[in-house]
């Protein structure tokens, strides 16, 4: 029994060696692909990496095996350090979102993310600002007026530390509305769920959250969403939530997710991925996955993505300098 399985393993190993040896030097892609998720299984980055993996596999877009590797830690710092060690390796991808820029500006990340090779922006999510159903704040303008009057008395909570997305999203809005974001009183929780419990328990006035985590509560009517940070209104339970623009605040806040190659990816590989990702986002499997995950498609090719990142960095730099988070 044991002997048999041992021979099997040995055979498989031999096959693998033979396979890699024979494919050396062939046209790109010549080796298995590794997609780095800079977080634990279960989070948004992991879901993104695994979705890419699945669609490439099902649609047979990548001719070699694909695997996702989780490198959790430091809000993406460990994953970033890992992909930097793979400099020049054309068979390494990594997924990231705004913390890539935020953590670079506040110097949590020691590497410069600009060395990564942007391949495409893929999807986006937005923030909503929610209050408890029985809150005295009926509209976003009620809320803003109260904050304006006494910023310290209207506490808000989010699922991440100060200076990260939940906090910054409202700071950006407050600043546009003429409130000094430094005066705001933010309670940081380690996860959106905890922040929501605190809201429902009546301990804070409102919560800044990604849309996905609170959809069910908006639908059930336990919380009320006062505003969404997208440019146009969302669908489903979000269709009655006004955008900031409708409320006269000319700004948006995007929680985008995109995919990058390792630093120093070859021109050949970049061209191959530009083509492949374009094909990927057009497939039915991709569209179905997005629908299931309630992600908004936001495809931009490598050039568009690079330009977008530049704008994002400028906007974050302004905001974070005001708040003293940029170092």
């Amino acid at each position: 029994m044991f002997k048999k399985s041992f021979t099997m393993v040995a055979l498989i190993l031999l096959l693998c060696i033979g396979f890699t040896a024979s494919s050396e030097g062939a046209a790109y892609p010549s080796r298995p692909l590794e997609i780095v998720a800079p977080a634990n299984p279960g989070g948004g980055w992991d879901a993104m990496a695994r979705t890419i993996n699945r669609v490439l596999e099902i649609e047979k877009l990548y001719p070699q095996p694909i695997s996702v590797i989780n490198k959790p830690g430091g809000g993406g710092a460990v994953g970033l350090a890992y992909i930097f060690m793979k400099k020049g390796d054309d068979h390494e991808l990594v997924v990231f979102s705004p913390p890539l820029i935020i953590n670079t500006l506040n110097k949590t990340f020691t590497q410069n993310y600009k060395e990564l090779t942007p391949l495409a922006k893929l999807i986006t999510d937005y923030q909503v600002f929610i209050v408890k159903a029985d809150s005295p704040y009926k509209t976003f303008n009620d809320l803003l007026a109260a904050v304006k009057k006494n910023p310290n008395a209207v506490k808000f909570a989010g699922g991440s530390s100060p200076g990260s997305m939940d906090h910054l999203a409202f700071c950006k809005v407050a600043k546009m509305a003429g409130i000094n974001p430094k005066d705001l009183s933010y309670v940081a929780f380690s996860g959106g769920g905890e922040a929501l419990t605190t809201l429902l328990g009546g301990n804070v006035a409102f919560v800044s959250s990604g849309t996905g985590e609170v959809l069910t509560h908006i639908q059930a009517g336990t919380v009320r969403a006062l505003a969404i940070t997208s440019g146009v209104r969302g669908g489903g339970p979000l269709k009655d939530v006004p955008t900031l623009k409708e409320l006269g605040i000319n700004t948006t806040y995007e929680v985008w997710r995109g995919v990058f190659g390792a630093p120093g990816m070859s021109k050949e590989a970049q061209a191959w991925w530009a083509n492949t990702i374009k094909k990927m986002v057009g497939t039915k499997t991709w569209k179905e996955s997005l629908e299931k995950l309630q992600w908004v498609p936001a495809y931009e090719d490598a050039n568009g993505f690079a330009k977008f990142l530049k704008e994002e960095e400028k906007s974050y730099l302004d905001l974070m300098t005001d708040l003293g988070f940029a170092k």
Partner: peptide, 19 residues
Amino acid sequence: IDNQSGVPRFTFGNPELMD
């Protein structure tokens, strides 16, 4: 990383110690 201030403590610049 201290969740209340976002400041890393006793990490010695090592990304794997940040959590």
